[in-house]
Design a protein around this nucleic acid. Sequence first.
DNA 1: TTAATAGTTCAATAATTGTTGTATAGTTGA
DNA 2: TCAACTATACAACAATTATTGAACTATTAA
Lengths: 125, 125
Amino acid sequence: MDKQLATTIFESLASGVRLDVFRLLVKNAPSGLVAGEIATLLALPPTNLSFHLKALTQSGLLSVVQEGRYQRYRANLPIMQELIAYLTAECCTGHPEQCFDGDSASGCCDTEPSIQSTQADSYNL
Amino acid sequence: MDKQLATTIFESLASGVRLDVFRLLVKNAPSGLVAGEIATLLALPPTNLSFHLKALTQSGLLSVVQEGRYQRYRANLPIMQELIAYLTAECCTGHPEQCFDGDSASGCCDTEPSIQSTQADSYNL
DNA sequence: TTAATAGTTCAATAATTGTTGTATAGTTGA
DNA sequence: TCAACTATACAACAATTATTGAACTATTAA
């Protein structure tokens, strides 16, 4: 997971239509749906749906296989987990235990710590 | 977490600049950084950074507190966890055990199951 | 009080993304 | 082969988002 891919994935889900499509295919995992079914269920013109399916597929969020004249789309769930790992990989300067306690993230960064330095001398890139 | 919020969050991260800002603040959690530090580190004009910080804050990904003449920004990590839960809540028609085995998602939907029905009679909205 | 600093808002412009109809390519069944 | 069907590619247009400089508000220090 690099920055370019992460941005592409977020762009892919940054549309109401594409978010609907992806969630519909998550619901219908692992069998997936063919394009026409998606168009019917979401009441979308075929050209518009095709535009969004292309974006989702190119970002890796969907996979597609041909079945005769149909195109069957499936959601790629693991990529979402990789995305989260990418976002939180260097959480808290490599000390994620400050943020996450096991499976729960409820302890992370939602507290307001006292101000430590008004003028930072060294940053944390 | 509703659709509108989810879309807004994805839109917020669907920009290279905003993704850089958010990850920088994840790294620098929980102390956060003030706007000028972010601008310096990412080499962004103040107006442009302000534009993106506003988007990130309005979506809830960042919190901001005033410190004198400074504005300190912090990443809101838990919202990301809520977002993932939203995306996978109805995974596999309410049978996520088909997809996720405990903490790992590696088993989910990355296999290509044999085609079950070419023409679906009932959908799964 | 005055000058300097930090950050935002606003307006204009540039750039990107979304939507639609028409045309096209591939598949199926008569 | 031919007509119907599924889906995508293309082009034109509409709509949204990103970027920048100038002006403005608030805070700090002299």
